[in-house]
């Protein structure tokens, strides 16, 4: 038995995003021994298919078309519809990314199916596929299942562990021709505001600054630490409102929701607004001058002190560790 499950691999800057490998792992749970099929859309993606196999896909379908170079709801829906017509899947998994959030509800509607959005876990409990997802901005959780139609889900990055990469796995790669036409929305331009490097929503380490960073210049020391740890820089709403950094860095209820292994909050008071975006981080470190700051109530480790005094010492210490290693 088992289900046939499609997993859409998301391509960004010529590489598959890690959340897509996590989606394959989720797809395995949903498939219950059935087949997990990777799906890739883009201008030139055939060469990426092997990686989906290495992360557990049984085979991969690709649609190469210049009109799929950038994501559009119409283009990707047409390509996905062609794949669905060919395969008649019983489940589909996407990342809960800008793309997945935009596309999955439309597919669900088209297929007359339920959809679980933003799942952080998926389990088979007595034959039922149960998804865990945060509600009320992470203040509560629900377990949810699909009762009718395909098992459709988007999964939040950094939560479902990907399977170990195994280059020795083999799987068929089948290119499909799809005629993409009548795109009703046309992308004129993409303005990159996010600095190259580590994607905030997928970062394993985030160094975040709040009002206590005091200026745009003040963020430099955070950037240095983030780079050293192979992480990304984030910010609270307060820091964005004060123009210390771009809104693309904002973490919180409005802004990005992140689940890194290590979150270092610098000069962040810990307003509910902010906690909603990062409270599920695995380890939270707080550095703040104010011993009464709310952030210390949720932090695993706290240092009461001036971040401009603490961070340079922190950086020195990490450098020493790196030399040792």
């Amino acid at each position: 038995m088992g289900r046939k499950v499609l997993v859409l691999g998301e391509v960004r800057d010529g590489a598959i995003r890690h959340v897509s490998f996590e989606a394959i792992a989720a797809g395995k749970v949903i498939a219950e021994g059935g087949e997990v099929i990777g799906v890739l859309f883009g201008e030139s993606v055939n060469n990426l298919a092997g990686e989906m196999v290495a992360y557990g896909a049984d085979r991969v379908l690709t649609v190469e078309n210049e009109k799929l170079k950038n994501y559009s709801s119409d283009g990707f829906t047409q390509a996905m519809t062609a794949v669905i017509d060919q395969e008649s899947p019983e489940g589909i998994v996407l990342g809960h990314t800008a793309q997945g959030k935009d596309l999955a509800p439309r597919l669900a509607s088209k297929l007359d199916s339920g959809l679980v959005s933003d799942a952080v876990d998926v389990n088979n409990e007595n034959g039922n596929i149960l998804f865990t997802r945060p509600i009320y901005s992470g203040k509560a959780f629900e377990k949810k299942m699909i009762t009718d139609g395909l098992v459709l889900a988007t999964i939040r990055p950094n939560n479902v562990p990907a399977l170990a990469k195994d280059e020795s796995r083999a799987g068929d790669v089948q290119p499909i021709e799809v005629d993409i036409k009548d795109l009703r929305t046309v992308i004129k331009e993409i303005v990159r505001k996010t600095a190259g490097g580590v994607d905030l929503s997928e970062a394993k380490v985030i160094v975040a600054g709040g009002r206590g960073v005091k200026s745009a210049d003040g963020f430099k020391v955070l950037e240095e630490l983030a780079e050293l740890l192979g992480g990304a820089v984030g910010a609270s709403r307060g820091a964005c409102d004060a123009d210390y950094c771009d809104y693309s860095l904002q973490i919180g209820q409005t802004g990005k929701v992140v689940t890194p292994d290590l979150y270092i909050a610098c000069g962040i008071s810990g307003a509910i607004q902010h906690l909603a975006g990062m409270s599920n981080s695995k380890i939270l470190v707080a550095i703040n001058k104010d011993p009464e700051a709310n952030i210390f109530k949720v932090a695993d480790y706290g240092i009461i002190g001036d971040l401009f005094e603490v961070l340079p010492l922190f950086i020195e210490e990490i450098k020493r560790e790196l030399v040792k290693a």
Partner: peptide, 28 residues
């Protein structure tokens, strides 16, 4: 509805963290 909620629960309460003490250099 095409989906149903089977359980709602609160996240486990987080243990109070450890606030470090001593000289800043030692804390780091």
């Amino acid at each position: 509805a095409k989906s149903k909620v089977v359980e709602i629960y609160l996240p486990p309460k987080k243990e109070a963290g450890k606030v470090l003490e001593g000289e800043v250099q030692d804390q780091v």
